[in-house]
Design a protein around this nucleic acid. Structure first.
Length: 301
DNA sequence: CCCCAGGCACCTC
DNA sequence: GAGGTGCATGGG
């Protein structure tokens, strides 16, 4: 086992592990001393979280466990591998949060959110788990999305051990493509089960979700919409939370409500037009950051 | 019993 | 392409 620390005081704009992992951006982590996404868990804890790095991302070619905990200005990690570069990538520790806030619009609702969750960063999840989890997110609460992903990992993922504890990698496209629709429904996926199976088969057959990362924003969104169960909103989530499109603003029910209450001038009929309006209103290149702060703030107040 | 949850596929027109 | 409808599942 390896361990290490990352000095958070050296990061521009600081870091907050709990809000980063429990704001509904990522379903790739589990909390070891409590349930993710329970409101009374919000803020102030020094909880430990675990994830499994996909085999496709590790030097060893095997899935590798990382556990991590934030204490007093440091991120302490333990891992089966050198977790430092993975953590910097998955948690976007290189983002200059101070600069992002400077470039964001002067909005009271954003200031409130930023005061509550200072240090929260957008995540950069591995693309296949991110894609599947947001296909599962349709008409579903975050607590149950998390439960569905835990079920998928346990039922279909490769087990990995760290000091006697067993964790599961998120299933590969091959592992999910081989699952039956019935088995997927048993994980609680409901009508999303055939979407997940079909999307896994498409990836196995060679359609690459990560290829969107090389494209211009609208082409990237259209590329992702080829997958079954992926529309404009899910595509924007994958672009923002996995592929580095910090300008993407997923238009979900909460942001739509916010638009009605705070930005009525951005209202429009189609997703495209309203999305463009709100992206401009949120300052363009970092609009996804603004949206994520506002979403978490309003959802948990 | 109702309604709703970080929407989407599919069918009309 | 724009608009309506069905969709599994669990909790309030």
């Amino acid at each position: 086992m390896q361990s290490g620390t990352i000095n958070l005081s050296q990061l521009d704009g600081g870091f907050d592990l709990q809000s980063t992992l429990e704001s509904g951006q990522t379903y790739c982590w589990e909390r070891l001393d409590g349930e993710m996404f329970e409101d009374d868990n919000l803020r102030g804890s020094e909880a430990r979280y675990a994830t499994v790095v996909p085999a496709s991302r590790t030097d060893s070619g095997n899935p590798e466990i990382i556990t991590v905990r934030q204490t007093d200005g440091y991120l302490d990690w333990e891992s089966t591998t050198d977790a430092d570069p993975h953590l910097r990538e998955f948690l976007r520790l290189g983002d200059d949060l101070d600069e992002i806030v400077r470039q964001s619009p002067d909005l009271d609702v954003f200031k409130e959110a930023y005061d509550r969750f200072r240090g929260m960063r957008i995540v950069n999840d591995p693309v296949f788990p991110c894609l599947v989890s947001f296909i599962c997110s349709a008409q579903m609460r975050v607590e149950r999305i998390q439960l569905m992903q835990e079920n998928l990992r346990r039922e279909f993922g490769t087990p990995v051990e760290l000091e006697g504890d067993t964790f599961y990698a998120f299933p590969t496209p091959e592992q999910l493509a081989e699952a039956s629709e019935e088995e997927l429904r048993d994980c609680g996926l409901g009508y999303r089960a055939p979407y997940v199976k079909s999307t896994a088969e498409m990836v196995v057959d060679g359609l690459s979700p990560s290829k969107a990362a090389e494209m211009e924003y609208y082409d990237a969104r259209n590329h992702l919409k080829q997958f079954m169960g992926v529309g404009d909103k899910v595509a924007d989530c994958v672009l923002l939370f996995s592929l580095g499109f910090l300008n993407a603003v997923p238009l979900d029910t909460w942001i739509r409500t916010t638009i009605d209450d705070y930005f009525p001038e951005c209202k429009a009929d189609g997703y495209d037009e309203m999305s463009r309006n709100i992206r401009d209103r949120f300052g363009g290149q970092y609009a996804g950051y603004v949206q994520t702060y506002i979403f978490f703030h309003l959802r948990t107040r």
